[in-house]
Design a protein around this nucleic acid. Structure first.
Length: 462
RNA sequence: GGCCCGUUAGUCUAGUGGUUAGGACCCCGGCCUCUCACGCCGGUAACACGGGUUCGAAUCCCGUACGGGCUACCA
């Protein structure tokens, strides 16, 4: 049978980095094995589930390039199936109705713990068969009282738990809706899932689910529990995938970084999508949890900015430029700016910030920079530069460089003497790509206009 | 509290009984140089601790500590 995996988020929030990584590992596993990757929306908790989150989860998948191979499955549409399965369990005696009130359960639990019992003593109605009509009931699984369970986890290895540690958990709430540990089993089987790859926070649940498989007389799939990403706070990674996109991270970088968090392939750091698919193995997933490191993500992002075709990168950049109020099309100039700026920024948004002087109509110059570089002693030189630049037939980097080099010779000064004044003139500051590239990309009209402005400032300071 | 899982530098990791413990991010030097970057060269920094097993343990076993997860009519 071919490999079928699923990612099963509950739509109670946006897709964050932890969820995205779980989805990614499932997706990679499926692609690696030529199998199918499915998505199941776990929305049995009607109170907390929202459609906007469902939409956001799909949008995140699309952006990351991990779209499901089949139509998503929604648990809220399958309530009848769960009730039917629960009914089967009731009939076979593997589950029973519990008419206790929450208070009674709580009380029994407290007493049990006080006695030092291992399970939480929710077995009040396990051996009763009366059915009081004036009370609601939940349906509980009739878990084995003794013995032990062992699972062979594809990532964690062999894990064993004693039966006395597990209680009779609820599979159907008093309002008739099914609980997680129950529908997961029903759905995974119904969807022909062969490998359940999920966060390690579900490792213990696996044993409860094993009981359901046994009770339903179903063959369980293989399991692989991924180490959790620790230290995910609002500023460290629990931000939504879309927030990262808007902050200027490339999908390639997110995928690459996430893949390397808890998984490795020798010493390789940068992976293309195809390489990830080719190399991904559950056996090389680490078992310990890991910390999200924004510095490393930034580095990976820059690496990918340098690897994409400049035209492609420029295309993606226009979104962020537009967000900043600069509506531009992809043309030779924009591609040139991208080529000059991409190795100087960690993200696309940072690249916008550092490139503003290429797009603004009115340039603000840094007062200190003006003070230091637009000084009287370079007045004559600036005049000559403007003259020569005006006379240029072809406005290109080489020609501009020649103008500067020749003039430096003529005035017997180093390039440093004119580079910074020119930068202040054109960019308002002292930092930019190569001088000649910057002048060229600025465009003849804007460059000359700003040079004249700078000259005026110099003259006014005499 | 009980149970489960984990633990190589600040961080991500390689390592599967014998290595000067490797790579990457970060940080610090230097080179390149018109600024900033990129790039290149170099540097600081790790096997949690204690017992075993073994001729020999980062690697195997036990314990301790620390970290995480589960212990819901959440998923």
């Amino acid at each position: 049978m071919s490999v079928r995996v699923r990612f099963a988020p509950s739509p109670t929030g946006y897709l964050h980095m932890g969820g995205a990584r779980t989805a990614l590992f499932n997706w990679l596993f499926a692609r690696h094995h030529d199998g199918e990757f499915l998505v199941r929306i776990e929305d049995t908790d009607l109170e907390r589930s929202e459609e906007t989150y469902t939409a956001a989860i799909f949008e995140a998948h699309e952006w990351l390039g991990m779209e499901p191979d089949e139509e998503p499955v929604y648990q809220h549409e399958r309530m009848d199936l769960y009730r039917q399965k629960a009914e089967e369990l009731l009939e076979s005696g593997d589950a029973y109705k519990d008419y206790s009130t929450k208070e009674e359960v709580e009380e029994a639990r407290k007493e049990g713990f006080a006695r030092g019992d291992k399970t939480s003593h929710t077995r009040l109605w396990r051996d009763r068969d009366d059915e009081p009509e004036d009370r609601d009931f939940v349906v509980r699984i009739k878990a084995p009282l003794e013995g032990s369970l062992t699972i062979q986890d594809e990532v964690q290895g062999e894990v064993t738990v004693e039966a006395e540690e597990l209680d009779d958990f609820v599979i159907l709430r008093s309002d008739g809706t099914p609980t997680y540990n129950f529908c997961v089993v029903v759905d995974d089987f119904d969807m022909d899932i062969t490998h359940v790859i999920r966060g390690k926070d579900h490792l213990n649940n696996t044993f409860r689910q094993k009981y359901v498989y046994d009770a339903l007389d179903l063959e369980p799939p293989a399991f692989g529990h991924l180490p959790l990403i620790s230290g995910l706070s609002k500023r460290k990674g629990s931000k939504s995938v879309q927030a990262y996109r808007d902050d200027g991270y490339l999908a390639e970088a997110i995928i690459n970084y996430l893949a390397r968090l808890g998984w490795s392939h020798g010493d390789q750091e940068i992976f293309s999508r195809d390489e990830l698919i080719e190399y991904f193995e559950l056996s090389s997933v680490s078992r310990g949890s890991s910390d999200f490191d924004h510095d490393k993500l930034d580095w990976v992002n820059t690496e990918w900015m340098k690897r994409l075709e400049p035209e492609e990168l420029a295309g993606r950049w226009t979104y962020h430029l537009s967000e900043a109020g600069f509506d531009v099309d992809v043309d030779d100039r924009l591609v040139g700016i991208v080529e000059a700026m991409r190795e100087r920024a960690d993200t696309l948004t940072e690249m916008v910030d550092k490139s503003r002087y290429f797009f603004v109509d009115d340039l603000d110059r840094d007062a200190e920079a003006v003070d230091e570089w637009l000084t009287a002693d370079i007045e004559a030189l600036m005049e000559r530069i403007i003259e020569e630049l005006e006379a240029l037939d072809d406005w290109n980097t080489d020609a501009i460089e020649t103008v500067y080099r020749d003039l430096c010779d003529e005035f017997d000064v180093g390039l440093g003497a004119v580079a910074q004044p020119t930068r202040v003139a054109l960019t308002g500051g002292t930092v930019s790509p190569s001088l000649f590239v910057t002048v060229a990309l600025m465009g003849r009209e804007t460059a000359l206009e700003r040079m004249r402005e700078a000259l005026a400032i110099i003259v006014s300071r005499d």
